[in-house]
């Protein structure tokens, strides 16, 4: 029997790779921060849907949607490892850091995609499972492999992947796709460009270095700022629609309007930011507020729904 020496790079004399990756590294592949937003919006879809789902099955649905979102994150990290290694924001991700290999990430992503879609279909219904499968496909293939490196409108179209979770949650309860679930989709869909371009503005050197055609690099700061304002206005308008449709109260509508005006105000501050500003403080503030905004809008929608459903204000839903 021969005992082979083992070197620092994890490769033995006969080329066998010995991984030092821990469970935490695999968890990092799932993009936990993105997952938390997905869990929240999917939960909102479940709460806002008319009807009821067994709480155990609802919890399984949320778990499947979270794992499915994580799986698409792992597939994204597998494909984007080359550019992740160059950008400061992503250089410490498990693949560029050398903790997990691309093949491991790919296998992990595919396995989790299959499990999440299969279990959601078996436990809840196949429409929600189909939407989850489409979301994973959309994010991993349409956005990551195709749009991201091809068009500056990548985030506009690709944003649809992040907008599907409330629709999946809604479909888990009702087994259908309705106008109300499309409105939830549209709120996130319209919010994404304003949110992401604010980030892209102060990270544009990173994207420029790896050749990803983000709008600020391709069209310049000016047109990006205009589009941030346009999408902020559209998001603010879309967020009050549930109130006009009668699925949310007037109180929600007023709350959403105030938040929306603030969103547009932050966008206008970005618009007035001098060209070539080094610190880009307004863009950073806009990015931070955009996250708070989405959480607040969906929290308000859920609170309003619960209050109306349980007759706290005397009304029945």
């Amino acid at each position: 029997m021969t005992v082979l020496e083992n070197h620092d790079e994890g490769l033995s004399d006969n080329g066998v790779r010995l991984s030092e990756a821990g469970a935490r590294d695999f968890f990092e592949l799932l993009k936990p921060r993105v997952m938390s937003l997905v869990v929240f919006t999917a939960f909102a879809g479940l709460v806002l849907a008319p009807g009821a789902l067994n709480p155990m099955l609802a919890a399984i649905a949320i778990l499947c949607i979270a794992v499915g979102a994580g799986a698409s994150g792992a597939l994204n990290m597998w494909y984007d490892a080359d550019i992740d290694a160059v950008m400061t924001r992503t250089a410490r991700r498990p693949i560029p850091a050398g903790k997990v290999t691309g093949e491991e990430a790919l296998a992990f992503g595919i396995a989790l995609s299959c499990f999440s879609v299969g279990i959601l279909g078996l436990a809840v219904n196949w429409l929600s499972a189909g939407l989850l499968a489409f979301t994973i496909f959309f994010y991993a293939v349409i956005y990551t492999m195709w749009l991201k490196r091809w068009t500056p409108q990548n985030i506009v179209i690709g944003g649809a992947a992040g907008a599907f979770p409330p629709m999946i949650g809604y479909a888990a309860v009702t087994g259908t796709v309705s106008i109300d679930s499309v409105i939830l989709f549209m709120i996130i869909f319209l919010w994404t460009p304003a949110h992401f371009w604010a980030l892209a503005l102060f990270k544009m050197r990173d994207y420029g270095a790896v050749g990803v055609p983000m709008l600020p690099n391709v069209a310049g700061e000016g047109p990006t700022k205009v589009q941030i304002v346009v999408y902020a206005v559209l998001t603010a308008l879309c967020s009050v629609i549930p109130s006009f449709r009668g699925t949310a109260s007037l109180g929600y509508g007023l709350f959403a309007a105030v938040l929306g005006i603030l969103f547009v105000w932050y966008a206008l501050k970005v618009y007035r930011m001098p060209e070539g500003d080094e610190k880009m403080v307004p863009a950073k503030k806009m990015f931070a507020y955009s996250i708070l905004y989405l959480f607040a809008i969906f929290s308000a929608l859920m609170a309003d729904h619960v209050i109306r459903a349980y007759g706290v204000t005397g009304g029945a839903f």
């Binding site: 029997m1 082979l4 066998v16 010995l18 991984s19 821990g22 469970a23």
Partner: peptide, 17 residues
């Protein structure tokens, strides 16, 4: 038969996985 001698870090991470 060839075997590879694992480092302590590799053994620890394998157990963790």
């Amino acid at each position: 038969m060839d075997t590879v001698k694992m480092t302590e870090a590799q053994r620890k991470s394998r157990r963790n996985r």
